[in-house]
Amino acid sequence: MRWLNPNQSNPTLTQLLDRILTSGEIDRSEYLKLMSMILSDSQITDAQRSEINRIFDYVQTGRFTLIDL
Rank of each mutant, 00 (worst) to 15 (best):
V59L: 13
I55L: 03
L21K: 05
T22P: 01
Q60L: 08
L21F: 00
S40H: 11
V59H: 04
M35K: 12
L16F: 07
S29D: 13
S50H: 08
R2H: 11
Q48G: 11
D27P: 02
S9I: 10
I44R: 08
N7I: 12
Q60Y: 05
T65R: 14
M37N: 03
L13I: 14
P11N: 13
N5Y: 11
L17C: 06
S23Q: 13
R2F: 07
Y58N: 00
R63D: 05
F64C: 04
Q60D: 08
I20N: 02
D57M: 01
N10K: 12
N5K: 07
S29E: 13
L32D: 08
L17S: 10
L21P: 06
P11F: 14
R54C: 00
Q60E: 09
L34V: 07
F56Y: 09
P11Y: 11
N5A: 09
G24H: 00
S23E: 14
T61I: 05
T22Y: 04
L69W: 05
A47E: 13
I55C: 02
R63N: 07
F56Q: 02
Y31N: 00
S23F: 03
W3K: 12
T22A: 13
S40C: 15
T61Y: 03
T45L: 06
K33G: 12
E51Q: 14
I52S: 09
S40D: 12
P6R: 07
E30G: 01
T45N: 04
M35C: 10
M1P: 01
I67L: 08
D41M: 11
R19M: 07
S9V: 08
L13K: 11
G62H: 02
P11D: 12
G24W: 02
S23L: 02
E51D: 13
I52C: 09
T12P: 02
A47D: 08
M1R: 10
E30Q: 12
R54H: 04
D46N: 06
W3A: 07
F64G: 04
L17M: 06
G62L: 02
L32F: 10
R19F: 08
I20M: 02
D46V: 07
S40A: 10
I67N: 05
V59C: 01
L69F: 10
T14N: 15
N53F: 10
G24N: 02
A47N: 05
L39T: 04
T65Y: 01
V59K: 01
E25I: 00
R63W: 07
I20Y: 01
G62C: 03
G62N: 01
E30S: 13
L4E: 06
T45E: 07
R28M: 09
I67W: 03
E51Y: 04
Q60T: 06
L21C: 01
M1L: 09
T14S: 15
F64P: 05
L4A: 04
D41Y: 13
S29T: 11
P11L: 05
